[in-house]
Each structure stands twice: as structure tokens, then as C-alpha cells.
Simulated scan of single mutants.
Amino acid sequence: QFDWYEVSIIAINGLTKYSGNMKDLVEKFRMLRYIKKGTYLEGNLKQFYNEVAFSPRND
């Protein structure tokens, strides 16, 4: 399990042109569910990531 700070760094790195498929992995594994709700960062990341990336996993 990641801390919200670690996920923040991963999410921001996933938006760079050097990250390969990191953005896809962030969405697939729903890593952004650890981002603090209602923060400036969450609002900005929602502009770039699919909503599923913020939802809990059902397994």
C-alpha cells in the first residue's frame, strides 16, 4: 500500500512523456484512490486521469 505522498509522485510522473505506460498502470491499479480527497492535487489530477483511477478496487 502506498502513502498519498508516494502516489502523488507516481501520478505526476505518469503524465510526463518519459513515463512510458505509467499513466495506464496508475489507472489500471486505481492508485489514485490514495490521494487525499478534496485537495488541489486531486482536482488537478482529475483533469488528466480517468475517474476509475480514483475508485476503490472491488477484489
Score class of each variant (00 low, 15 high):
Q1G: 14
N21C: 14
K28A: 15
K46C: 02
N44K: 14
P56Q: 09
G38I: 00
V52D: 00
E42N: 06
D3Y: 14
F29I: 02
Q47I: 01
Q47E: 12
K36E: 02
E42W: 14
G20D: 07
L32E: 00
I9A: 08
I9S: 06
N21Q: 14
P56F: 12
K17T: 05
K37P: 02
K37I: 01
F54D: 00
L41A: 07
S55D: 03
I12C: 11
S55I: 04
I12S: 10
Y49M: 11
I10R: 06
V52C: 04
E27H: 07
D3A: 13
N13R: 05
R33D: 00
E42Y: 15
R30D: 02
G14Q: 05
E27C: 09
R30V: 10
I35Q: 09
I12G: 02
E42C: 01
L32W: 10
G43R: 10
L15W: 10
S8C: 05
G14I: 01
N13C: 06
F2T: 02
L32A: 03
G14Y: 02
L41M: 10
F2S: 04
K46T: 02
G20P: 03
E51P: 03
R30C: 11
L45W: 13
L25M: 09
D24V: 11
V7R: 15
L45A: 09
F48W: 13
N13E: 12
A11N: 05
F2M: 07
N58A: 08
K37H: 14
K23S: 09
Y5S: 05
R57L: 15
A53S: 06
M22C: 13
M22E: 09
Y49T: 05
Y49V: 02
S8E: 11
L25N: 03
D24I: 10
T39P: 01
Q1L: 12
L15V: 09
S19Y: 03
L45D: 04
L45C: 03
N13L: 06
K23C: 05
Q1R: 14
I9H: 12
W4Y: 15
Y40E: 10
N58H: 10
N44I: 03
Y40G: 00
L25A: 07
I35S: 10
K36T: 01
Y5Q: 12
E42M: 07
Y49K: 07
N50H: 12
S8N: 11
V26Q: 05
T16H: 07
L15G: 07
Y18S: 12
M31G: 01
A11H: 04
V7P: 06
I9K: 15
L41S: 05
Q47W: 02
G14E: 05
F29H: 14
N50I: 00
F29P: 00
M31T: 03
L41V: 11
N50W: 00
R30P: 06
G43K: 14
W4L: 01
D24P: 01
